[in-house]
Design a protein around this nucleic acid. Structure first.
Lengths: 341, 341
DNA sequence: AATTTTTGCGTTAACGTTAACGCAACATTC
DNA sequence: GAATGTTGCGTTAACGTTAACGCAAAAATT
């Protein structure tokens, strides 16, 4: 591996000049600059990461702006696990994560979390842009030079370092395939839209429905359900949906609140087929008990992990990284449950 | 972060002595040693990885002893992808992998590959111990100080740094669950044991069968099939199995040769349900075409990746690592296919 | 013409660890 | 008692990069 010293020797210059060229710090003649750059190109010089970090002696602070861990049925707690794991593996590089939580139901909460992250001068940001307008506004206030990656969702028209997420439409299709295997022949299926105006959830519904487009023997009923309601209200809503349709034998639940639906419908014995989302603790427990049949995992933990490593590769290793990371659509059921978290 | 220099200062000694204690290089009095060790404990000293690597300036050579990539329906080529990816991510650490392929049908081939790896003085080894006796013999000849990790399988009674693999029994159970959904009601199912005396394959058969223990409406027929046979012979064997049983509507194929079975049975239109193993190129293509219904992935790519990173964490970072890594049992079907490799 | 500023480069200490080397003081061997 | 280990420690150069500092010479401003 060629070093700066060797480049300097070949160019008949000092390492200081080479360093200035590499970092574009100026105070170098055009001619010298070109000479050094050509040597760098032809020799394929790569900066020694250890020497750099030893010399720089910097700590890297990553800001993580996500909803409170317990929201969405503790969905965000899973992501935190992945983030913490990544931080643990990168201690040697002085990488530290700082959480700035927000309430996913109020824009002000998001904005203040973002503001706080910026005021604490994070070197990079991991953002869950679940609130579209607030995210758009906030992202514009991020100083240039501070890279940010999106997890879970994305905001078109912005310039993140990377987008990490899952194809929600296709996951809906996948859910439909599983439901089709459970509900063979003909029957009615309820699709529970757990949030209005949520891109992910709408895409899941769209993907699910598309699968049954040419299947007249299956009838879909789409219902809006307030996933944030208290247990009593929620149970009442689910029960009334069940009684309205009467003969729905399958329920597709479009977010991590699947367990709450399962508890109402399959609380005493298995009565309905249930396909839902996300490997939260509660959902895993209910799969084990047989109350949920399939869970589609967003690989939430891996999303968090990938968010940190992406920032790490960019900020610490200064290496290029993929602009889009598509998480696989994991199918989780009782028989392979224990290997997912 | 505390440094060696600081430890030396607190102990009233020089950094040379501290270094000797840390590396157990002797030439230090018992009393001094204890004093330094206690300071290390109380301060939680952790060696600076960058300084170490900068100083050591070593290249790490990892030997990878696996079957020829094209064997087992190119199964091993997938693992190679994961290994190469890991190497790519670790270039900064001067980590290099060297392949020593063997023919999985001859022990001599394995032994010579292993011998060659040792003669080239690899710092660590990744071994696929698919040949039990040969692996056992070889592993005994590995010099102490050269760590090795197993991928795919394991050899009890040996002392690998880590074992990376999948619970084959449980994957068989998982395959049975999927088959049960495809073959509802009653019917006959063929189980193709693709290799004799192979631990993994036998476990998969055992897991699959156990699922149907209490299901009298399903009748299982276990057949031994030579997965190494040429296409003509192979097709003949599959066809004769099909005609012997006559009414088998589901086929459980216990290794990556699933595509060859699917080509024979579902070559023209979907006639039989097929559940098999491993996301090889051919298998993926046949899932897309609808000739294979479900594939259980061993996460082969991730196994290779984990093999390299495990050695890396041990040899380069000198950090502890998990002794057992269980890969999830990924369920792959047409609707989520594109996100797996 | 005298001054300040800019340009273009070299020099150097520092980051933390490693391991070779040096060197007293003491112990052992012939 | 002279020669030869051994023990227990300190000193130092090196690894490659960074960035502050210094300093001529040339250019620009008074």
């Amino acid at each position: 591996m060629i070093t700066i010293k060797e480049i300097a020797r070949r160019a008949g210059l000092s390492i200081g000049t080479v360093d200035r060229v590499i970092h574009g710090r100026g105070r170098v003649s055009k001619e010298t600059e070109n000479k050094i750059k050509s040597i760098i190109r032809t020799t394929g010089y790569k900066t020694n990461i250890h020497a750099r970090n030893l010399s720089l002696q910097t700590t890297h602070h990553f800001g993580v702006i996500i909803p409170f861990p317990e929201q969405d049925g503790s969905y965000w707690d899973i992501m935190r696990k992945g983030i913490d794991q990544a931080e643990g593996e990168l201690v040697s590089f002085n990488v530290h994560r700082h959480y700035f939580y927000f309430n996913k139901y109020t824009e002000a909460s998001f904005l203040s979390a973002g503001k706080e992250a910026l005021s604490q001068r994070m070197g990079g940001l991991i953002i869950a842009p679940v609130l579209f307008d607030a995210s758009l506004a906030f992202v514009k206030s991020i100083p240039p030079g501070v890279p940010y990656v999106y997890v879970d969702s994305t905001i078109p028209g912005t310039a993140p370092l990377a987008v990490i997420g899952q194809d929600s439409f296709q996951s809906g299709v996948c859910g439909a395939k599983l439901m089709r295997m459970l509900v063979q022949g003909s029957g009615d299926i309820a699709v529970l839209r757990m949030l209005r105006n949520n891109f992910h959830i709408n895409e899941r519904v769209r993907g699910f429905s598309s699968f049954f487009n040419d299947t007249p023997s299956i009838k879909l009923h789409v219902f809006d359900v307030d996933g944030g309601a208290d247990d009593r209200t929620f149970a009442g809503n689910i029960r009334s949906i069940d009684s309205i349709t009467g003969n729905c034998i399958g329920f597709f639940v479009t977010n991590a609140e699947t367990h709450r639906v399962a508890k109402v419908l399959n609380g005493k014995g298995h009565a309905k087929w249930i396909v839902g989302y996300d490997c939260t603790w509660e959902n895993k427990r209910l799969i084990e008990e047989g109350a949920i049949d399939f869970i589609l995992s967003q690989n939430t933990r891996e999303q968090g992990y990938a968010g940190v490593t992406t920032l790490f590769r960019h900020l610490v290793l200064k290496e290029p990284c993929a602009a889009e990371v598509h998480m696989p659509i994991d199918i989780v059921t009782a028989e392979n449950l224990s290997y997912y978290q």
